[in-house]
C-alpha cells in the first residue's frame, strides 16, 4: 500500500472503522458474512511517540522496528490494529511522526485512541485518524465470519477508563441480533476488567460491556495501556493485554506507582513488541513477538 493510499485509508480506519467501510459508510465486499474460516491480524500498542525519557530514548526507532518486522512477515496480516497511546502528549507533530512510521505498514491499519492521544480534547486525534461516522468514535466490522468491535474507554477525562451510557447502549444494539456462535474480538485501550484498579488499570463500567458479551461462545478482548502481557479468562471471555512498542511498566503491585520502567537496553527489547492473532474456526491463537 503506497503512502497516498494509506493516508486515504487512515481516514477510513480512524478509531476503529473497518477498512471495509467506504467513504459513504457502506460495507465493501471484503469478506463480510463469509463462513468462519481463518483470519490473522497483528496488534501493536502504546507507541508514545514524543516520549524522551531514560526508559526509551528513541520510541520512534522501536515503533519503526516493529513496523519492519510486521512488514517482513511472510504472510501479511489482514490488518494491523493499534490499541492506543500512539502519541505521548497528543501534539500534532507527534501524530505526524507516528503516521509517517505507521504509513510504512503493508497491511491496513485500524487505530483507536488511548488517553495520551486525547489530552486536552479529541480534536488532534480525530484530525490525525478520522472519526467513525455516527458514533462517538467506537465502531464494529465483520471480516471472515468474525465480528470485531472497537471500544473507546478514554473519552471521559475525570474517570478512566469509562465507556459511558451512549457507548454501552450502542454495544448492546450491536450485539443484540448476533448468533451466540459468532466469534467476537473486542479492541480497546484500557483493560475492560478490573486488572489492577489501584493503578487505574480498569474500566469502571466494563462489567456492563462484559455482561453483553458473556452469552457468546468465544470472545477475545485485546487491550493495551499497561505495557505488558497479561492474560485472564472469565467464562467464555479471554483477555490479553499487550506489550508496548515504547517502554515497559512494572507488573501490578511490584512498584509504588505505575509508569515508565527503566531496564537495560537488551532487556528492554525483550519487553517491547507486537502480537499476532489467528482465529481458525472460532479458535483463537495468540503469539507474542518481541524486538529482541
Amino acid at each position: 500500500m503506497n503512502r497516498s493510499r494509506f493516508l486515504e485509508h487512515v481516514g477510513w480506519t480512524g478509531t476503529g472503522i473497518a477498512f471495509t467501510i467506504g467513504a459513504a459508510g457502506s460495507m465493501s465486499p471484503m469478506s463480510a458474512g463469509a463462513k468462519p474460516q481463518s483470519i490473522g491480524f497483528v496488534q501493536i500498542s502504546d507507541s508514545h511517540i514524543g516520549f524522551h525519557q531514560p526508559a526509551n530514548d528513541d520510541v520512534a526507532a522501536t515503533l519503526s522496528e516493529t513496523v519492519d518486522r510486521i512488514n517482513a512477515m511472510p504472510v501479511q496480516p489482514t490488518f494491523v490494529v493499534h490499541t492506543g497511546d500512539v502519541t505521548h502528549l497528543s501534539k500534532p507533530a507527534q501524530f505526524d511522526d507516528a503516521k509517517q512510521i505507521l504509513g510504512r505498514l503493508r497491511a491496513p491499519l485500524v487505530v483507536m485512541p488511548g488517553e495520551h492521544d486525547v489530552i486536552g480534547g479529541t480534536e488532534a486525534y480525530f484530525a490525525a485518524f478520522g472519526k467513525a461516522k455516527g458514533t462517538g468514535g467506537w465502531s464494529s466490522f465483520d471480516s471472515d465470519g468474525v465480528h470485531f468491535i472497537s471500544l473507546v474507554n478514554v473519552f471521559n477525562f475525570e474517570k478512566m477508563g469509562l465507556l459511558g451510557t451512549e457507548q454501552l447502549d450502542w454495544l448492546e444494539r450491536d450485539l443484540r441480533d448476533r448468533k451466540r456462535d459468532t466469534p467476537i474480538v473486542v479492541f480497546g485501550h484500557v483493560p475492560l476488567y478490573a486488572l489492577y484498579p489501584q493503578w487505574g488499570w480498569t474500566t469502571e463500567d466494563g462489567a456492563k460491556a462484559l455482561a453483553y458479551l458473556a452469552r457468546f461462545d468465544a470472545v477475545t478482548v485485546l487491550n493495551g495501556h499497561i505495557h505488558q502481557v497479561i492474560s485472564h479468562t472469565e467464562g467464555t471471555i479471554t483477555f490479553h493485554t499487550a506489550n508496548a512498542t515504547a517502554y515497559p511498566q512494572p507488573a501490578p503491585g511490584t512498584a509504588d506507582k505505575p509508569g515508565p520502567l527503566v531496564v537495560p537496553k537488551d532487556r528492554l527489547l525483550k519487553m517491547l513488541g507486537y502480537r499476532s492473532v489467528k482465529l481458525i474456526s472460532g479458535e483463537t491463537k495468540v503469539d507474542e513477538s518481541t524486538l529482541a
Binding site: 526508559a55 477525562f157 506507582k257 509508569g259
Partner: peptide, 15 residues
C-alpha cells in the same frame, strides 16, 4: 515524576 501528567481545571479555567 517520570510519567506525564496534566493539571486540568474542572471549570476549564486553566489547563
Amino acid at each position: 515524576d517520570d510519567e506525564a501528567h496534566t493539571a486540568t481545571a474542572i471549570d476549564a479555567s486553566f489547563d
